[in-house]
């Protein structure tokens, strides 16, 4: 196991109380695994991704732990975490378009960052150039300012920059959201290539685009209201989902080759619960067609196959 997360709890501090964005999340990630992390907005995907690399000022680590390659990640300790960032855990942020300092040339920026991490830019430069060419960027971009690059180029530049020190775990947070479809496909394929070339060992791809993540991920994990509802191999999740929420999500996707005509795609009625005071029991029960009395209690995580789990009372029966 490259990454083991156990009962991770991260809350957002607000004036009205703690918002439980991650409320007991446990999962494992194998060496070389690409895991897609999906769910609707506000379900805790990005919070989970951020928790593994850097809590922002409003986030508070309440409980649980994460172990990466046998060593514990000091999630709550910003200083200790600094040594692990970039080398062991790295991130491609949601905001790649604005991730680079606009007033510094990209080469200078990279050199500043590497020097601050105690690496030599001169030694790493040939490797950097090689990787740039791999994603279709010329060495010349190092003499450019970020504003001189197109959105897709900036995205690829950040991908190369984030993975330059060969991190063990890479968090790719909504990397394709701001791109057009052809770029999305290219970026997704680049992520897979990075793993095959050993630039990164394993990857968590945070997305709300299930159809895209299906093409590159080995496994998919679905989150709902701060909890994991189902995790399994990508094929199983897409073709034979067991949790009612996963099913509803997949039914909301259009399918290639089907004529929809007047028929509307299904959407999930209602909206996710407030996480300030989350309801007890199954959090999806208000929107679930299959809900029954038992759902007032917390559903257990049931192993349906060695690597397929779902948290639902219906699955138990």
């Amino acid at each position: 196991m490259a990454l083991e997360v156990e009962d991770l709890r991260v809350h957002y501090r607000t004036l009205r109380g703690d918002v439980r964005a991650l409320d007991g999340v446990s999962f494992g990630l194998a060496d070389g695994e690409i895991m897609g992390l999906a769910g609707e907005s506000g379900c805790g995907k990005t919070t989970l991704g951020k928790s593994l690399i850097r809590l922002d000022g409003r986030m508070r680590h309440v409980g649980g732990r994460a172990v990466l390659d046998g060593g514990e990640l000091p999630i709550a300790d910003d200083k200790a975490m600094n040594r692990r960032r970039y080398r062991d855990v790295s991130i491609i942020p949601q905001y790649s378009m604005s991730a680079m300092n606009p007033t510094r040339k990209i080469g200078k920026l990279t050199a500043d960052l590497l020097r601050a991490k105690g690496e030599s830019f001169r030694e790493l430069r040939p490797e950097l150039v090689r990787r740039l060419e791999l994603v279709g960027l010329s060495e010349q971009v190092l003499d450019n300012y970020p504003i001189e690059l197109s959105g897709g180029m900036k995205q690829r530049m950040v991908m190369v920059l984030s993975t330059l020190l060969d991190p063990s775990l890479l968090i790719a947070d909504e990397v394709t959201s701001a791109l057009d479809v052809s770029n999305q496909k290219a970026v997704a394929e680049t992520l897979v290539r990075f793993r095959e070339l050993g630039f990164v060992k394993s990857m968590v791809v945070v997305t709300h685009d299930l159809s895209l993540v299906y093409q590159i991920a080995d496994s998919i994990m679905i989150m709902y209201a701060g909890r994991i509802v189902e995790k399994g191999p990508a094929d199983t999740i897409i073709n034979a989902p067991r949790h009612p929420y996963t099913r509803a999500l997949i039914e909301a996707l259009p399918e290639v080759g089907l004529e929809y005509g007047d028929r509307r795609l299904k959407s999930i009625p209602g909206k996710p619960p407030q996480l300030l005071n989350p309801p007890t029991g199954c959090r999806f029960r208000d929107r679930c067609e299959l809900a029954h009395d038992r759902c007032i209690e917390d559903p257990p995580a049931v192993d349906l196959a060695p690597d397929h789990t779902a948290s639902c009372w219906k699955v138990v029966d």
């Binding site: 690399i53 850097r54 922002d56 975490m81 600094n82 040594r83 692990r84 960032r85 970039y86 080398r87 790295s90 991130i91 942020p93 905001y95 604005s98 991730a99 680079m100 300092n101 606009p102 510094r104 500043d112 960052l113 601050a116 991490k117 950040v158 984030s162």
Partner: peptide
């Protein structure tokens, strides 16, 4: 609080560099 500051901090850049930028 801008994106580039956040990115640098996520990659573990020291406060000094972030502040300088």
């Amino acid at each position: 609080e801008s994106d580039y500051s956040n990115y640098l901090q996520a990659l573990g850049a020291p406060r000094r560099l972030v502040r300088r930028y």
